[in-house]
Design a protein around this nucleic acid. Structure first.
Length: 165
DNA sequence: CATCAAAAACTCC
DNA sequence: GGAGTTTTTGATG
């Protein structure tokens, strides 16, 4: 039984992302779909003021990342997951823009060097791509690995940060 | 509720 | 190409 989320489109040069908010902050972010999202529940009238404020920040942060820069400010993130996942996501957010890491490096950074495969799993479970830069994580030998939103997006995001794969 | 088995966006030999 | 490590998730008793 999840709390209802309010979904709003975030317009960027790369398409219309869908941002979902809970009462506590940004809970989910999804890549633009080919077709428009059916029946947007949120009209401006029923969106609480604080969520509109968060959304403004989200959109700005999103554009920054898409332009290859680290956002100055983040909206509050309402990350739901296991302790392990939250630890991984936190480590991901410390990767500077334009740099890449590997699953092994993340595993070492959180003190569990052998848990590389589990790290991959946690990345796949990341509900907020782009702002939690799971796209900057490559496999140990430079392979691209995988990506929830599709590998095309991973390449696009890396390219916008000037990273060669 | 406890336990078992299988899978995963990996890495190393 | 195959084995190894960690965590999550779903089935089973």
């Amino acid at each position: 039984m999840n709390k209802p989320l309010i979904t709003i489109q975030a317009i960027t040069p790369d398409g219309e992302f869908a941002a979902s908010y809970s009462e506590n902050g940004l809970a989910e972010l999804s890549f633009p779909k080919a077709r428009r999202i059916a029946s947007l529940p949120a009209k401006n009238d029923i969106v609480p003021a604080r969520i509109r404020a968060w959304h403004r920040v989200t959109e700005t942060a999103l554009k920054s990342v898409l332009a290859g820069r680290a956002p100055k400010i983040f909206p509050p993130l309402d990350l739901v997951g296991t302790d392990f996942q939250k630890t991984v996501w936190n480590a991901l957010r410390e990767i500077p823009a334009g740099k890449t890491s590997s699953y092994g490096e993340i595993a070492r950074a959180i003190g569990k060097p052998k848990a590389v495969r589990a790290v991959g799993g946690a990345c796949g479970a990341n509900p907020i791509p782009v702002l939690v830069p799971c796209h900057r994580v490559l496999a140990a030998d430079g392979r691209i690995g995988g990506f929830s939103g599709g590998l095309a997006w991973k390449r696009t995001l890396l390219a916008s940060e000037g990273v060669e794969v």
